[in-house]
């Protein structure tokens, strides 16, 4: 593993939400180092999914900065440079909503490659990833409505890995899934992290799962009342952390 002086993902002083006067997150900071797996726990409505979207550069916070590998995010959504956007892979909670209903599973997995002009690698990468997530047979030729939630989520995990992201954000990835599929997908993610040294931010409410899965967990308390509840109890900061800030 290369000793990268910068944390893979660094969120500092994030205030975000959907109404400027009542943000769901207030001044939240969180650091995830390369090849580290961090579980973010919290009750529903505490803003943990919003934080996941901020980390993936999909939601612009009202305040605060996001750094990827030490480099500050230069925009959000389409305004973020493609290299930064694709450095973070995202898996969502509900595979039904996260899959374009018109694409076959193969096209779904290959979509990020095609979108970034690397369509030629698609066939090979799709085969590789389909093997990794355990999608065999004619499943790849089917559309989302013809497969089960578990199978679709496998395809969504493959899609998140197809561009070899340095950071993976899994937002309640297994909330809809049975125990065996949950364990299988966690294994896929962990295998990828072993090989690539990618960082993981796993968001969820299942303490047992995240404590088993991740190196450490942090807690995001409920947003109720605007007390000091939103503070993330983060791990001791690495020296590189302060120098980067």
């Amino acid at each position: 593993m290369t000793a990268d002086p910068h944390p893979a993902l660094e969120l500092s002083g994030i205030t975000a939400g959907y109404e400027r006067r009542a943000p769901v997150l207030r001044d939240v900071s969180l650091t995830v180092h390369g090849s580290e797996a961090v579980g973010l726990l919290g009750p529903s409505g505490c803003g943990k999914s919003t934080l996941a979207k901020v980390a993936a550069l999909l939601h612009r916070p009202y305040a605060g900065t996001v750094r990827l590998g030490g480099e500050p995010a230069r925009g959000w959504r389409h305004r973020a440079p493609r290299a930064q956007r694709t450095a973070v892979g995202v898996v969502f909670q509900q595979p039904r909503l996260a899959a374009d209903p018109r694409l076959t599973l193969a096209a779904l997995i290959a979509e990020p490659l095609r979108a970034t002009g690397r369509g030629r690698e698609a066939t090979e990468r799709v085969r590789e990833l389909a093997d990794a997530v355990g999608l065999g047979g004619d499943l790849l030729d089917r559309r989302p409505h013809e497969v089960s939630d578990g199978q679709l989520q496998r395809a969504c995990v493959a899609r998140a890995l197809v561009l070899r992201p340095r950071v993976l954000v899994c937002d309640e990835m297994t909330a809809m899934l049975d125990a065996s599929t949950t364990a299988a997908l966690v294994t896929v993610v962990e295998d990828y992290r072993q090989r690539s040294g990618a960082a993981l931010l796993a968001v969820g409410h299942d303490r047992t799962l995240l404590e088993r899965w991740c190196d450490r967990t942090v807690e995001l308390a409920g947003a109720g009342g605007g007390t000091d509840g939103e503070e993330v109890r983060s791990a001791p900061r690495a020296p590189a952390d302060t120098s980067a800030g």
Partner: peptide, 18 residues
């Protein structure tokens, strides 16, 4: 047995295949 063994509080190992 496999389903129970897949739980994170147990072996956390998936049943192979689908």
């Amino acid at each position: 047995r496999g389903l129970l063994a897949a739980l994170p509080e147990r072996a956390f190992t998936p049943i192979p295949g689908m």
